[in-house]
Design a protein around this nucleic acid. Structure first.
Length: 564
RNA sequence: GCACUCGUAGCUCAGCAGGAUAGAGCAUCCGCCUCCUAAGCGGAAGGUCUCAGGUUCGAAUCCUGACGGGUGCACCA
């Protein structure tokens, strides 16, 4: 359930009762536990506007709020803060609702269609660390939107139409062999082709010729090209499967698929008077930026921007998307600002359509430089994933003895989970420093902490052997706070969805798990001497916590384990 | 040069539609397993929120400027 909107309504009603119409009635989380659960700070600003005493307004408002049984305590503090504490009855009454598959999270009444564009690998090369953030953040957002009820279309905008394909075809022609053998290591093949391209002018010319041939539909070229793509997609799929990312061939919507519409786009922009010719190229100029967006080169070739415009048109008009999220690194901010503005000008997306660049920072090594291999090359994503699992295996076997099969399973969940969590727990807009030790440390705010909390709860529930689902008895502050936290999952997910910020979810989960651990230390569940009703109550709290953790981690694409 | 973005504890990061004594984790120090998983819990210490102005009853948060880092800047994607 969503608590904050409910509180906002209650405050609005209370204002009505005292004949004041405030601009906003947003409650916020209490800054400290002593202040209660939530606080409303609007009285100060309001007093200024109405030229009265803030404490007076706050007192009057508090008086009204007190009448509502949702609150255990309403307190006016300092210059006019209103501190709100929810009643245990309210929390207890709602807690059983979280014992279902959705952990008590409401499904949207008015779902919209959302396109999430993420991962977007280049088909000529293997995926590298640069693709990690887009893939993970995008998948999480898609999961999140979907969970909240939106109709999500995951799109993998693969780069399959660039000039690099001419190079690959040319190189293949030179070294004609069995295509499978040649492409078994695509990276090597690409490097070899690139080397030839840089060394030989003749080869470079030939490559360019092949691009033209390819793009004009030469059958032989197309056949080779699709073989490259197919092979390349197999590599990508291997990565997605290992990561547990929900992308597959049905999500692929390639650059080349927009090819037939590109000429129309140019014509349309020209007809609408939005595009102008400048130095031979077709450009769109903007008032607040000196750089134009080039949509057609002087030689007639189309560009990235052209494809992006066609993609917007397709996503809005054909797919009916109301929100389109581009999970692409922050360096392309200006590009997307321009593309979005151009799309608006052309009427491809009206103001009601949300076009969002979900920008993220770079992945850096411990010394703050771009993440590279020891010899300075790019780190292949598949290697990074395997390394994470390998290291997780070492770390967990140090702490415990596992059978071979169990070790594999746990290492995979912990390794992949940690890799994802390390990324998702940081505000996506900033660059982040990737540190193996920090990521796989067994302490603190890591995936393992949540997985551990979940496994512990699971162990208790298993030992208890079943219990009656009922309203818990919230007997102390810890239980009160735990119950409140469990019930705030919905508010957290709403906020994370609205702002497309996965790290709100990780913060929530960490707070939840921490509260549980404290509860667990202080409030015995199965130990001797615990009265039956208390035991049942605590089992309910434990189960609800496990549910919230599982749901939250599920959205992040992180597996839970029954036992660690 | 222009634009965007960032600067918070020794390190890595939260907090930023203004609100009370600025929060975590790691690292450091001190405690807690005859007791539901110690991969845990409790505690200590650690900050003039880069600097200087401004707006405000109130600024880490908003505005201006400086300094410092990163990124992007016409026919790559």
């Amino acid at each position: 359930m969503q608590i904050k909107p409910k509180l906002n309504n209650i405050i609005q009603e209370a204002f009505k009762a005292i004949n004041i119409t405030p601009k906003t009635t947003q409650v916020s989380d209490a800054t400290k536990p002593e202040f209660g659960d939530y606080q409303y700070n609007g009285a100060m600003a309001l007093a200024k506007e109405l030229k009265t005493n803030p404490r007076e307004i706050a007192s009057k408002l508090a008086e009204q709020l007190q009448k509502n049984s949702i609150f255990q305590k309403v307190e006016v503090a300092g210059p006019g803060f209103i501190n709100l504490t929810l009643s245990n009855e309210f929390l207890a009454k709602n807690l059983p609702n979280t014992l279902n598959e959705r952990a008590g999270v409401q499904e949207k009444e008015n779902p919209i269609r959302v396109v999430v564009d993420y991962s977007s690998p280049n088909m000529a090369k293997q995926m590298h660390v640069g693709h990690l953030r887009s893939t993970i953040i995008g998948d999480t957002l898609a999961n999140l939107f979907e969970f909240l009820g939106d109709e999500v279309i995951r799109q993998n905008h693969i780069g399959d139409w660039g000039t690099q394909f001419g190079m690959l075809i040319a190189y293949f022609e030179e070294n004609q062999k069995d295509i499978d053998a040649k492409l078994s290591d695509l990276e090597e093949f690409y490097k070899a082709a690139k080397k030839r391209f840089d060394e030989s002018e003749e080869f470079a010319d030939k490559s360019r010729e092949y691009v033209v041939k390819l793009q004009s539909g030469d059958e032989g070229c197309l056949k080779l090209w699709s073989a490259f793509i197919e092979k390349s997609l197999e590599h990508c799929q291997e990565v997605y499967d290992k990561l547990g990312v929900k992308l597959d061939n049905s999500c692929v919507k390639s650059e080349s698929s927009y090819n037939d519409d590109l000429a129309n786009i140019i014509a349309d922009f020209e007809a609408k008077g939005i595009a102008k010719e400048s130095q031979g190229a077709k450009c769109i100029f903007f008032e607040n930026s000196k750089n134009p967006l080039i949509i057609q080169k002087a030689d007639g070739g189309f560009l990235y921007a052209t494809t992006d415009l066609a993609a917007i048109k397709y996503r809005v008009k054909e797919l009916g998307a109301k929100r389109v999220c581009y999970v692409v690194d922050a360096r392309q901010s200006e590009h997307f600002r321009q593309v979005f503005e151009a799309a608006r000008k052309a009427g491809y997306a009206d103001e009601s359509i949300l076009l969002e660049h979900i920008a993220f920072g770079m992945m850096l090594d411990i010394s703050g430089r771009p993440f590279k291999t020891r010899d300075g090359g790019t780190v292949k994503l598949i290697d990074l994933i395997d390394e994470a699992v390998k290291r997780a295996k070492e770390v967990i076997s140090r702490a415990n003895d596992y059978s071979g099969e169990e070790l594999e399973k746990i290492a995979k969940a912990v390794g992949i989970g940690s890799l994802k969590y390390a990324d998702l727990s940081i505000n996506r807009t900033s660059d982040y420093i990737f540190d193996w030790n920090k990521m796989l440390s067994l302490e603190g705010n890591t995936a393992l902490y949540m997985q551990y909390a979940y496994a512990r709860i699971n162990s208790i529930l298993k030992k208890a052997g079943g219990f009656e689902e009922s309203e818990p008895i919230l007997s102390d502050e810890l239980e009160h706070r735990l119950a409140l936290k469990i019930l705030s999952l919905d508010d957290t997910l709403q906020k994370a969805s609205k702002e497309a910020m996965p790290h709100y979810i990780t913060s929530y989960l960490y707070e939840l798990a921490t509260l549980f651990m404290r509860f667990y230390e202080n409030n015995p569940i199965l130990k001797e001497g615990v009265p039956k009703n208390i035991k049942t109550s605590r089992l309910n709290l434990a189960k609800a916590t496990a549910n919230a953790i599982k749901t939250g981690l599920g959205i992040l694409g992180i597996e839970v384990l029954d036992r660690i």
